[in-house]
Design a protein around this nucleic acid. Structure first.
Lengths: 219, 219
DNA sequence: ACATTTTTTGACCAATTGGACAGAAAAATG
DNA sequence: CATTTTTCTGTCCAATTGGTCAAAAAATGT
């Protein structure tokens, strides 16, 4: 009687084996879920809303993901990679200041083009990152440490002002993501006309700002 | 039959008239609620949790505030004032760079000492600030515009580097609040030993950083 | 001491919601 | 076609939870 966790009862992956239709549906759900989660948060979002946004029934969503939490987690995991890619591209080979400015600009663009993702991530961290802590102190820390070392070298060689590289990276994250995460506030303060050029203004400002802060002091 | 909104049925204020015990109880609830909201968010927090944290029964907190939402709103409103006070103290009279550095430091301290408040506020804005938009584009905008004008003047007089004052203020907010709001991430990356000195490091870094970025360029 | 108002709670309720289930529809398989 | 597997949905359920209510307990006023 206790027919159990049969393989047929759910379209869960575990391993790669996903048919085309499965991949599509999952994608469809994730897209819809991102919309909902970004606005309402994990707790505020409901399966019904997600199902509705994805244009399918509630049990259908459960069929593909098993639970609301699973969708959220999935979304978050696939996000982290994208989120870090700009930093990954920071290259030791390039011209120091230019490399950093490029990084800033890439990060800003990402905020501009993926505000929902940014908010999702921010909310998660803000609430203690229960499902992400491991990755933060694992993969993320490694990457940051590595790039921090590069920046540190540049500083030492006098190609860049002396700044704590870790905190520099925090600054870049803080300032760029601020425009996506707190857009409501920023727009409220800048007012209508300026709010439209928001990201152009931000770009100009940040470039200028970081140049000033990082250009090595002439001796 | 329709006996209604009798005055005796709730300890709501409307106007100042609050007895000592009422003020105390409300305060007690607000303190507990801040703990809960900061961790779980509005949606995730439950009346039961709040009541429990405040050491009283659920109907009791409803008696004093009427609804969960009311507590949240109250908390948020009383917060905004505190939150802006550092900016308010930025004085046209003082020495420009020093004034700004003081502001940065005050803001950072606030993040350090009131991380729950910071997170509460951040979460609210992040989710569209439904109950705060008016204040943002009203009182907040006015204050920011006023101080931005002061900074603008300093720049024009050559006492400060040329930067967009609004964006400068955003930077300060972003960087200082980052340490409170995303502390989990920051600590995960810095690792144990450094995480303890977090705010000292941040202070040193930010001071240095803003000096570099804002010191007027010698001609 | 008594009446009245305020404070406090246990018991209860209705709405929401995550998700289980059984079975229909559709696809794949033989 | 028959059968088996996968996809999909209507229906239902149990748990959670915001909030009500009636009445007890304190406090306050006279």
């Amino acid at each position: 009687m206790v027919e159990k966790a049969a393989s047929g009862r759910r379209a869960d992956p575990k391993k790669q084996k996903l048919t085309r239709i499965q991949r599509e549906k999952r994608q469809q759900i994730l897209r819809a879920a991102l919309d909902v989660f970004a606005v309402d948060g994990l707790r505020g979002a409901t399966l019904a809303k997600i199902a509705d946004a994805a244009g399918m029934s509630k049990p259908h969503v459960v069929y593909y993901f098993g639970s609301k939490d699973a969708i959220y987690t999935d979304l978050l995991e696939s996000l982290l990679e994208t989120w870090l890619s700009p930093l990954r591209e920071l290259s030791e080979e390039g011209e120091p200041l230019a490399e950093i400015l490029t990084y800033v600009r890439r990060k800003l663009r990402m905020s501009q083009e993926m505000p929902r993702e940014s908010k999702l991530f921010a909310t998660e961290i803000l609430h203690g990152a229960p499902r992400t802590v491991d990755q933060l102190s694992g993969a993320l820390k490694s990457l940051v440490d590595e790039k921090a070392a590069v920046i540190e070298n540049w500083s030492r060689e006098g190609k860049l002002a002396h700044v704590d590289p870790h905190h520099l990276i925090f600054s870049i994250w803080a300032m760029t993501q601020h425009y996506a995460d707190f857009d409501v506030q920023v727009c409220a303060i800048l007012g209508e006309p300026r709010a439209e050029r928001l990201f152009d203004e931000a770009d100009a400002y940040l470039t200028d700002f970081f140049v000033r802060a990082l250009r090595p002091t002439v001796e």
